[in-house]
Design a protein around this nucleic acid. Sequence first.
DNA 1: TTCTTGAAATATGTAACAGAATTCAAAAAG
DNA 2: CTTTTTGAATTCTGTTACATATTTCAAGAA
Lengths: 172, 172
Amino acid sequence: MTNQGGRREGAGRPKGSNQYGEPTRPVRLPVSQVERVLRFVREREHELPLYACGVSAGFPSPADDYSEGTLDLNTHLVRQPAATFFARARGDSMIGAGIHDGDLLVVDRSLTAEDGKVVVVSINGELTVKRMRREKGVTWLVPENSDYPPIQFQEQDEAHLWGVVTNVIHSL
Amino acid sequence: MTNQGGRREGAGRPKGSNQYGEPTRPVRLPVSQVERVLRFVREREHELPLYACGVSAGFPSPADDYSEGTLDLNTHLVRQPAATFFARARGDSMIGAGIHDGDLLVVDRSLTAEDGKVVVVSINGELTVKRMRREKGVTWLVPENSDYPPIQFQEQDEAHLWGVVTNVIHSL
DNA sequence: TTCTTGAAATATGTAACAGAATTCAAAAAG
DNA sequence: CTTTTTGAATTCTGTTACATATTTCAAGAA
């Protein structure tokens, strides 16, 4: 009866047919994080669909394919985690650059502050946001609001460059 | 000589003194993700410091305490992962709401589109962004740019509400 | 031809283990 | 008496090992 045994090519569950399509190994994690990590790795909960506006691409549906693929905010906005921080903007001195009161700024300290970049500087212990202009060897911090005057910038004890603003996050 | 044996209260490594301060357990993960996940749970690489601009709070330093704590972009911007998607804005019809050409929009489908909310709608297979106005039982989609006219909105085959814009992400 | 069944092979969650790390107190040294 | 060294106790930690589940192929039954 039992003539079904013996070594047979291709029998059994295929190698590499696990849910990840690659080898796995056990890693010890804190119990409170296990569920979150598994969602992170298995369902890629943080990668959300990205659509394009103003482009006629059939009738898009979140359940269907994503016209522009998926996006992870942290990966997309934070290129250098160790050198990145956030700053909460105050006032309307940079309204011309699209920075409103209360906006969240993504600041990268590893970028070089070239002419024309929007930078975060500390002056007298306060963080402030301005556009940097280099002109004839002089560095200016220029607000994008005609109500405010440009100020000259010299790296010293009371004035220090913190980083370059890469993104502005505005809540509606 | 060896009179140091036997059960002794308090001897040995203290219970709960592991790096997480809570019990751990082994979890099987794909090898390519192990390193990333360990950085995620151990160093909380995704939680970055948040500072306040325009507030004199001493001399802030990324190495010191963070005046405003830390922030995780995904957690902060995406409240309902299953109901959230991103949309790439095109054109300048919503410039008045701070939405520029190329901006990334965070859209929540679980929010109700009340009067005054900025919404994403599909019209003739195209996704578009407008401010919703309800007036005497009529729903209008109003651009925030006087060069464009408001259009009347009726939920039907060719016009469908996709969600409410919660955040605008602008690159500099 | 189609359905059922048995064995094979891998996936998967977790117990278990070996070595490292840490703590207390006895014993030794100064 | 004070300080340093040493040994055992206890837990942490990364990984191995294993029991069970799952999936596949093909023989046998219908």
